[in-house]
Amino acid sequence: MTETKKKSAPKKAAAKGGSGKKKVTGYMLFAKEMRPKVIGEKPELTFGEVGKELGARWRALSEEQKAAYKK
């Protein structure tokens, strides 16, 4: 019997000087604010459908409205 070793995945180096967290985008701030409102208005939507609704509402905003979230 031969013994086989499992190969482990190579380890990724930690980001230099960063905490490893991604920057919060304007869309993410918008979604955090609007998600409870969408669920309150349409409680029958699934998780994925809520995401699609949030995306549609984000796209419907003007650049001036989006700028408030992108600060």
Rank of each mutant, 00 (worst) to 15 (best):
M1I: 14
T2H: 09
T2S: 05
T2N: 06
T2Y: 05
E3R: 07
E3T: 12
E3M: 10
T4L: 09
K5Y: 12
K5N: 12
K6D: 13
K7S: 06
K7W: 07
S8D: 06
A9H: 12
P10F: 10
P10M: 12
K11Y: 03
K11Q: 15
K11L: 15
K12Y: 00
A13K: 14
A13M: 04
A13E: 10
A14W: 00
A14D: 12
A15Y: 04
G18C: 11
S19M: 03
G20V: 04
K21W: 09
K22N: 12
K23T: 11
V24Y: 03
T25F: 05
Y27R: 03
Y27W: 06
M28G: 02
M28H: 00
L29M: 09
F30C: 05
A31P: 01
A31C: 04
A31H: 00
K32G: 04
E33A: 14
M34F: 03
M34Y: 07
R35N: 03
P36L: 12
P36M: 08
K37E: 13
I39T: 04
G40L: 14
G40R: 12
G40N: 15
E41L: 14
K42A: 11
P43S: 13
P43N: 08
P43E: 10
P43T: 01
E44L: 11
E44I: 02
E44R: 00
L45R: 01
T46I: 02
F47D: 11
G48M: 07
K52A: 14
E53F: 01
L54S: 03
R57N: 03
W58T: 07
W58N: 06
W58F: 07
L61M: 15
L61F: 09
L61S: 07
E63N: 06
E64M: 02
E64G: 10
A67W: 01
A67L: 11
Y69V: 11
Y69E: 10
K70D: 14
K71V: 15
K71S: 13
